[in-house]
Design a binder for these strands. Structure first.
Lengths: 146, 146
DNA sequence: ATCTATTTGCAAATGATTTGCAATAAGGGG
DNA sequence: CCCCTTATTGCAAATCATTTGCAAATAGAT
């Protein structure tokens, strides 16, 4: 479901969004977006770092910034390590994953349950601005065979 | 939605389940169940530790054991800290939470989307044994006022 | 080319959770 | 009730992901 846009597009978007915040377009930031653009599945900070050549702390700092700018989305598979995916320009990145409990293979799930459910829950409890986080776990075909 | 059973019942269950595994009924294990029984919301290992008087490592070890024995369920609100809830005897503990992004107030959500959704996803991708993790986040009434 | 604020790299700090190991306690047998 | 074997605890140190302090490097405007 991830929208893998063109490098140019990415760079232009990065430039535009950074400019508005007095932030700079640096090598590491471009490299991280490049790496994420190539990957179809979410990557951990360490995986990104291993594919690059810049400090791990810089990867974390950049990812945080890119997340704040809504260019990257953070996912949590409950294993204590955050994963990051690139967001396209008009993509809010809302989707879910189906993760294999054995081999960690990830499948992206486009559909989601109806917004009514979320709205009802918000209303019932008086909460505002409700969002959700949903991930699926199971055994992938290969791991079932093994 | 947590079923808060009687102390006796808990102890009996604990005893029975531990016996079958050659494990012992120790003070810390009983204390942890006692603490969890009193709380209606999930607690972190540290919170449990602060209410008790035993080593934090023991709390972690006990929680892991109790989780394996399906007497306790682990939840992940995506803040890097696991929370634990007591499970009742016939309770599989499947439910969700609505967590305030500001003050971390937790509301338990009993209902869940239909199993069809989960089944369809499993079938579509050839996965077996599919489960899911779903949590809601929003602003609670108090924090909206503030 | 210059200047200034933002970033980076590196090392050290943090916070949650785990682990090694010797001392301690639980449960069965006598 | 004492003993013995084995599971468990406490404590300290180790791990792991992530963050932070700070001086050196660099992007972007002048």
């Amino acid at each position: 479901m991830a929208v893998h846009s063109h490098p140019r597009q990415n760079l232009a978007e990065l430039t535009a969004r950074l400019r508005q915040r007095d932030r700079r377009i640096t090598g590491p930031r471009q490299l991280i977006l490049d790496v994420l653009r190539r990957e179809e599945h979410p990557l951990t900070a360490r995986q990104i770092h291993d594919l690059l050549d810049c400090d791990l702390a810089t990867v974390y700092r950049s990812l945080r910034l890119l997340e704040e700018m809504a260019m990257v989305k953070r996912f949590d598979f409950g294993d204590g390590t955050a994963r990051f995916e690139l967001l396209g320009q008009n993509d809010d990145g809302h989707h879910h994953h189906l993760v294999c409990r054995e081999c960690s293979t990830v499948v992206e799930i486009g559909e989601c349950f109806s917004g009514n459910f979320e709205n009802r829950i918000a209303r019932q409890h008086g909460f505002a601005n409700v969002s959700h986080r949903l991930e699926f776990f199971g055994l992938c075909p290969e791991c079932q065979a093994a």
